[in-house]
Write a protein that binds this DNA or RNA. Structure first.
Lengths: 138, 138
DNA sequence: AATAGTTAATTAACCTAACTAACTATTATT
DNA sequence: AATAATAGTTAGTTAGGTTAATTAACTATT
């Protein structure tokens, strides 16, 4: 079964990968869900907690907690929207700096992991992942 | 950056996929780590908690807890090894039945997710994942 | 045979990261 | 104006991780 091989490997990779990523993140006092959120803000700019929750596919209270910690660490800040129920969340400059550092470190990890796969193969793998995501969320 | 695209998509897929898988599993009162463990036993046969821990890349106490719950649900059983420190864990027949059901349901989910990708593309994606896992754990 | 060191499994205490339910404040709808 | 819906928070729970410490059993060396 081709599908099961694919997703079997997908899962098999997950824990060891997470362990490696967490090892890099502890230098900055970050955990991986915090990092995921920072990365989202880095890539897409300021957004509200509700949008973050929807993007990350987790419930709003989970986001509230992560934002509280990131706020205490000085990595994010918020301003009220013109709709006064909303809060707009953005990275602070210190948050952006950390983000860049982490991205650099992870880039070299990722490069190592793709050693031995050609550019073309990786591109095909990307398209398969992208299509799976598309099929899942449409 | 090719690597970041690949791993960016890898992560992006993870939560929505987990949510779908968990939705299937709740019918059987299972959570995904419990399922991962059952699948391992189904595919590889009886083994000790220490080996499970090593295969899943988590610490032994985590496995102890999961096995306790699976035991309460009647999905696994254990017998002492000839080395009396060891416990050999295996699926019960009810555990095996549940495993087969879940596998069937997930197979159809996975098939849907790979719709639109050719056999060759999926094979290449598999090889990229396998190589990443290899690079990570060697 | 005794001792020292190692390994397998468990327990306890703690943490992260998720969840649901219920709440407040604000905005939108009827 | 009343009601419904939405954004965010709070409180409480749970799964599933962690480390540190404990017990029992095995191994090797004296």
């Amino acid at each position: 079964m081709l599908q099961q091989n694919f997703f079997g490997l997908y899962y098999k990779l997950y824990r060891p990968l997470l362990n490696q990523v967490n090892a890099k993140l502890t230098q900055y006092g970050l955990f991986s869900s915090q990092w995921q959120l920072m990365k989202l803000l880095m890539q897409e700019g300021a957004m509200t907690p509700a949008e973050i929750a929807q993007r990350q596919q987790v419930e709003k209270p989970s986001i509230t907690k992560i934002l509280q910690r990131l706020g205490e660490m000085g990595y994010v800040e918020s301003t009220p929207g013109q709709d006064k129920r909303e809060k707009w969340i953005r990275l602070t400059s210190s948050g952006e700096a950390v983000c860049r550092d982490v991205m650099e470190q992870l880039a070299s990890l990722y490069e190592d992991l793709l050693q031995g796969s050609s550019k073309e193969e990786v591109e095909i793998a990307i398209s398969v992942l992208a299509r799976a995501h598309q099929n899942l969320t449409s």
